[in-house]
Amino acid sequence: MDMREKFSELNNIPDFESKIKDPAIAMTAGMNVLQINVGRLCNLACKHCHVEAGPNRTEIMSREVMEACLKLCSNWGFETVDITGGAPEMNPNFRWFVEECCKLCSHVIVRSNMVIMLEDGYKDIPEFYAKNKVELFVSLPHYKAKKTNRQRGDMVFERSIEVLKKLNSIGYGKDPDLVLNMVYNPSGAFFPPDQTTMENEYKEILGREYGIVFNNLFCITNNPMGRFGAFLVSSGNLEGYMKKLYDAFNPATLENMMCRYQVSVAWDGTLYDCDFNQAADMKISNGETVFDIADKPYEPRKICFDKHCYACTAGAGSSCGGTTEA
């Protein structure tokens, strides 16, 4: 579904850029994060997934694109390499790529659905992560089984708990070098709760019920893209949700919008300002690929916006790293 076409029909929601008064805010302000989507193949097909990942997707990042990413990482010196998917572990070159990233960058994070670590061929991934001191961002949309399974599939909650226990048993969430973060996202067309309140609730309930510990919980606003966007349209919620995002626009979140500090590489080497622009197929303004920029110095670029960007500026703000309010 072309969500941008749907946005253009929402006449009561002003263009996002009209809310940016300072032209400098519409430019990148540095390149701290190299986000790499290594493919859309996933063992799950979650209802809200903005990249519409699933078991039948064939878009997989090649080793050639990964090598260009490594070159870019080496030349630009990012603070963080953020590897996502799909289930990134399902890329055949994943382990090699993570090891190479760890040689170049001291802060490598992987966004994992966790349950892949119970599948044949992936059961030793927890130890692999620990050996490389990879910081994990694992998805657990709720501490109640019913809510998580409704969004991610039958028994995903129970399997996630099994993996979390395994991660804890090898030091994740306990050893300062093995950081285990969780990601909460709402189960529908409404905003996430206060991040600190929800983190406390998760820690109390997961600790009490299952003996699980973790470092941080990040609350992410659902972006009206991919499957979640299609749900908004089919359920008649698009206009109401977009209005809600627009009404909650908070100028104090503009400065820290994640797109100002990162570049997002797609499976084929195409570059985007963020993973949501990747879902919208809004390439970076000059259309360059990772092959084009890998040997060039960083230059500030104009960020591409559309109405889905209101999801990053509503309330306390939202990013792949949680709230962003300055």
């Binding site: 019913k146 809510k147 709402p186 996430p192 709760p193 309140t197 609730e201």
Partner: peptide, 8 residues
């Protein structure tokens, strides 16, 4: 819902 309260 936005406070994370569920239907139950």
């Amino acid at each position: 819902l936005s406070m994370g309260v569920d239907e139950e």
